[in-house]
């Protein structure tokens, strides 16, 4: 009995199945009305959660459009976990499949990916970033066999659109759309300490870090970086990301 009631209750809220509402016990007041209040509260609060996780998407489409997007998303993807901070992970994929949104603003799914990466980095467990001091005691002979791992809060997002410019924007850049040359941007999200960084990467650095994330050793990753960007320089890249906290303190040394 209780599982049936719970299933009907769920169908009546996010599924908007009004027939299911009739199956509820009559409490003297009109059930449809009572249920409507409950349902609206669910949609209101979840829309608020999404607006907090995707502030720039919300700003660029406008509050009213965002509420429409959010309501469709909530109906299609109700929360699967009882933690609101974890809600919205497939919003970017939902936007990519929602033709009316991407026809007008084709960058929306990528921008949503950046905002979700920020959200994830924020709530990811703390971990110690690798700093130059950690490596200072190593014998120079072992440098070539050094294997670096990305900090667990790191997310890499490559886009055909200027997502780094768009992230945090109050309005679309002028002129819009951008020319093909300046269009594509690559973004690194990380939280080495308490603050989330959103950094624009060169094509070389992006390919290098992507190769490290895939498990490549430094030599292979450096080749990937050089292939993607002619101005890629391993020493400069390493120094910058050691200072920024992109790597995890748990480095390893390959067997010789």
């Amino acid at each position: 009995m209780l599982p049936d009631l719970q299933t009907a209750f769920c169908a009546g809220t996010v599924g908007r199945d009004t027939a299911a509402v009739a199956a509820l016990a009559d409490g003297g007041m009109e059930n449809g009305h009572r249920f409507g209040i409950y349902r609206n509260n669910i949609f209101q609060s979840l829309t608020g959660v999404l607006a907090a996780a995707f502030p720039t998407v919300s700003k660029l489409v406008g509050d009213e459009n965002f509420a429409v997007l959010a309501h469709r998303f909530i109906a299609a993807h109700p929360p699967q976990r009882p933690s609101l901070y974890a809600y919205g992970g497939n919003f970017a994929a939902f936007l990519a499949g929602f033709a009316p949104a991407v026809e007008e603003l084709p960058f929306l799914p990528d921008l949503a990916q950046v905002e979700w990466a920020v959200n994830e980095a924020y709530f990811e467990a703390d971990a110690e970033p690798l700093v130059a001091d950690h490596l200072a005691g190593l014998a120079p002979e072992t440098y070539a066999r050094l294997r670096l791992h990305l900090h667990p809060t790191v997310r890499l997002i490559g886009s055909d659109w200027p997502v780094w410019d768009l992230w945090g924007a109050e309005a679309l850049p002028d002129p819009w759309p951008p020319g093909e040359q300046e269009g594509a941007q690559r973004v690194l999200v990380r939280r080495p300490e308490s603050k989330v960084d959103v950094v624009m990467l060169t094509p070389g650095d992006f390919a290098f870090l992507g190769a490290l994330a895939a498990g490549d050793a430094l030599g292979e990753a450096a080749a990937a970086g050089a292939a993607a960007g002619p101005d890629f320089d391993l020493a400069t890249c390493l120094a910058g990301h050691l200072a920024g906290g992109t790597f995890h303190s748990g480095y390893t040394i390959d067997a010789s």
Binding site: V131, A132, L135, A136, P140, E141, Y143, A144, L146, L218, G219, A222, D233, L234, A235, T236, C237, L238, A239, L242, A243
Partner: peptide, 13 residues
Amino acid sequence: TVAAAVAGALSLA
């Protein structure tokens, strides 16, 4: 090359 780059990065840092 890798070893030289790591050494370079550490001295930069």
